[in-house]
């Protein structure tokens, strides 16, 4: 456990020194631009998802934008957890257990990203309160929980890709290809293999969507640990 915490802290430090922090800034800027300036998008979302206009428009737009962005963000954060870091992994693996390395790095990236989503959610909630004097905490909270679990499923998929691939470029291309492929899969009889299939509307938490998404984590993360454990470094 101590090993895992050391790797976790180290990885968080690395995230804040790497380009990943720039990705977060860019994505936040993009979301803010969409949420606060595009009335067309707002209207579109209103008509599509909330025709009766009961929900807070700002939180609603943020939620759907994040939902679309999560497969991309998770890829950018997790494609290099294992792949391509062979030299560095040899250095670490001579002192740390492999499961500590992979889990420490996985949770460091996951928790950092979840905090980032939480910050955007809080920011949007406060902004909407300032604009509309309506603070929709319950829906925002459920929305955040769903996005956190949706992210966990995507990070698990990307982790196993990163463990299998031996270079960062292969892992990145594979992760993007799989993200796109799973959109198609979600329309077939194998839809249960795609996280896109398990969608919750803003503010709604259902076990039919949450449980399968958590299953991605339960199956894929131990499998990644096993593959990494068996792999030559």
């Amino acid at each position: 456990m101590k090993e895992l915490i050391v790797i976790f802290k180290d990885e968080v430090g690395q995230i804040f020194r790497s380009r990943k922090i720039l990705y977060m800034a860019a994505i936040s800027a993009l979301i803010l631009a969409i949420v606060y300036s595009t009335k067309v998008v707002q209207l579109g979302i209103l008509i599509l998802f909330d025709p009766e206009n009961e929900l807070n428009i700002y939180s609603l737009v943020t939620y759907y934008t994040l939902y679309i962005a999560i497969p991309i963000i998770s890829t950018l954060f997790s494609y290099d957890i294992i792949s391509g870091a062979q030299k560095n992994l040899r250095f670490l693996a001579s002192r740390y257990s492999r499961s500590s390395i992979i889990l420490g790095r996985f949770f460091a990236n996951y928790i950092t990203l979840t905090c980032f989503i939480l910050l955007i959610t809080i920011g949007t909630t406060l902004f909407s309160f300032w604009k509309t004097q309506n603070m929709d905490l319950k829906h925002s909270f459920f929305g955040f929980v769903f996005l956190g679990i949706f992210l966990l499923a995507w990070m698990s998929i990307n982790l196993i890709i990163s463990t299998i691939c031996h270079t960062n470029s292969k892992s990145l291309y594979m992760s993007f290809a799989v993200s796109i492929m799973l959109i198609v899969v979600s329309q077939t009889k194998f839809a249960f293999l795609s996280p896109y299939k398990f969608f919750s509307h803003f503010g709604v938490l259902e076990s039919t969507t949450i449980t399968p998404l958590i299953c991605f984590f339960i199956v894929l993360v131990p499998l990644s640990v096993y593959i990494f454990w068996r792999r030559d470094l």
Binding site: Q14, R17, S18, Q86, K87, N88, F91, S94, R95
Partner: peptide
């Protein structure tokens, strides 16, 4: 308690 220096491994560069 094993210490190791191995060719093809490197310290963390940044």
């Amino acid at each position: 308690k094993i210490g190791m220096y191995v060719q093809g491994a490197s310290l963390c560069q940044n």
